[in-house]
Design a protein around this nucleic acid. Structure first.
Length: 485
DNA sequence: TAGCCTTTGAAGGCC
DNA sequence: GGCCTTCAAAGGCTA
């Protein structure tokens, strides 16, 4: 595997990529206060999008990095955490917004002190970015979940575009593939590696910009590093970057995938794709895949699905979705309004992040992505949005708050336990309800919980869609709640 | 192993 | 404006 060996400030030299977390190492629980801070930031971001723009410049809004740390960063030093588990302040947290498989780094400014004079700490779990970073989302969960191989894929999480715009060093993200990441928020041992990309042409100060810029609005800039692969022995190796790419953080360009027949030492290693049949195809494949923002029902599903699975002992998604659909209709307007509001904020932020994105862009990509995933067993896992500050959106993250006491347990507070239910009958599939007629014909007024609600957040009534088959099974019946209609 | 199933909502295109 | 299609999540199921 060729090293990306260049000059002295080679950004991915092995000696600069050190800090890896032992796979067996446990992670601290997320810090509550840090989550609260994040929520504040999310809230402010959303509010900002909903209100008139302030006159403050983005630089003014950006947290000031620690000068000492910033200086180190400019010198391309890699900072590592010491061997002892650092009592961090919840720096690495599973994103409460599980709509996207992110990790959040809330504030790194207070992590300067542990750094040694040479910029490195004794080897242990994590590497911290050596300067203050307001918020960072690191894509990951999916990449880990299906990584059966005892290897660790490290990829650039920020495109050069972002790096140059936002001005902080690109970082690398190492996933611990052995960790059980099936549960939301379980991505705890992500290791960050801060490279010295800072010196690779990053002209702006680390705090000249704060908010992400849509990748579609930027000229693609090939990243100097490309991909980094870390074997099970944590021996990082650099992989030549994709030929053209600009992988937006979130996004794995289709061109970055395993070349059929190509031999390289790691099954997860993304490789350059052989030339497509047409330039149009190549262009399409280079386009980043930005997923649609989740609508209210999807947000509700993400929150309630695990509960239904646990409660009903049903795993089949089709059945679960039927149950959730029934429960959704049984929710009070106030309860639904929570999700509509969340979805509206989701759309707001999404449109802010990707102003040029259109839902039409994803048409036809779904099957293509499936094919690509089957070829590489990777791409689908890597197509997670890693846009900055995306998690800032979720003030009330549904899934992340699954186990939170503050989470309203509206639809699943049923006293009826699983033992009292008859999951077997659910296997009798009701006639399929097609939504080909009049699904979106009617869009009645939303619960409008707040005056900020926009017409686009209007939840449809039951009449707006063909009436689902009545499901009399207890599973489909919402648990009695005091707030129900 | 690719695609289906199943749900609701949003968005875009067509007429 | 109405209708239609597609996608978003999820994981078991099926051809």
């Amino acid at each position: 595997m060729p090293q990306l060996g260049r000059d002295g400030d080679d950004l991915g030299a092995n000696d600069e990529l050190i800090a890896f977390k032992d796979e067996g190492e446990q992670e601290e629980k997320p810090n509550v206060s840090s989550e609260r801070d994040l929520d504040d930031v999310k809230s402010s971001l959303v509010n900002e999008s909903e209100t008139t723009n302030s006159s403050d410049s983005e630089a003014d809004r950006r947290p000031k990095p620690h000068p000492d740390v910033e200086s180190r960063a400019r010198h391309g030093q890699l900072f590592q955490e010491g061997p002892r588990k650092q009592h961090d302040t919840g720096l690495f947290q599973p994103s409460p917004y599980v709509g996207y498989p992110f990790f959040m780094i809330s504030d790194l400014g207070n992590l300067c002190s542990p750094y040694l004079t040479n910029g490195a700490l004794a080897p242990t779990g994590r590497t911290y970015l050596p300067f203050q970073w307001p918020l960072l989302d690191i894509p990951g969960r999916a990449a880990i979940r299906d990584s059966a191989a005892p290897t660790h894929l490290v990829r650039l999480s920020l495109s050069a575009t972002h790096t140059q715009l936002v001005g902080f060093p690109t970082f690398l993200c190492c996933y611990n593939s052995r960790e059980d990441t099936s549960a939301p928020g379980s991505l705890s041992s992500v290791t960050l590696i801060c490279s010295s990309i800072w010196e690779a042409g990053m002209s702006r100060s680390p705090h000249t910009a704060c908010y992400p810029v849509s990748p579609g609005g930027m000229t693609p800039i090939p990243h100097p590093l490309g991909w980094l692969l870390v074997s099970s022995g944590f021996s990082p190796r650099l992989v030549p970057p994709p030929q053209t790419s600009v992988p937006h953080p979130a996004i794995v360009p289709a061109s970055v995938k395993q070349e059929p027949g190509a031999s390289h030492s790691h099954p997860l290693l993304p490789c350059r794709k052989p030339p497509s049949t047409s330039e149009h195809d190549q262009e399409e494949e280079r386009k980043p895949h930005i997923k649609k923002p989740l609508n209210a029902f999807m947000l509700y599903m993400r929150e309630e699905r695990p509960k239904v699975v646990a409660q009903c002992k049903v795993k089949e998604s089709a059945t679960i979705n039927q149950i959730l659909g029934q429960r959704w209709h049984s929710l009070s307007k106030e309860e639904q309004a929570k999700y509509y509001d969340l979805a509206r904020k989701e759309r707001l932020l999404h449109s802010k992040l990707y102003p040029n994105w259109s839902a039409r862009d994803n048409y036809g990509k779904k099957k293509k992505r499936k094919r690509v995933k089957s070829e590489t067993q990777l791409e689908g896992e890597m197509t997670c949005l890693s846009h900055l500050t995306h998690t800032q959106l979720s003030q009330a993250s549904p899934a992340s708050s699954l186990d939170s006491p503050a989470t309203p347990t509206t639809a699943l507070a049923s006293p009826a336990g699983p033992a009292q239910l008859q999951p077997l009958s659910l296997t009798t599939k009701p006639p399929r309800i097609t939504h080909s007629v009049g699904r979106n014909a009617v869009t009645p007024g939303p619960p409008t919980p707040s005056s900020t609600d926009t017409p686009t957040s209007s939840p449809p009534t039951a009449s707006s869609r063909s009436s689902p088959q009545p499901l009399s099974h207890p599973f489909f019946l919402p648990p009695p709640t005091s707030s129900h209609r």
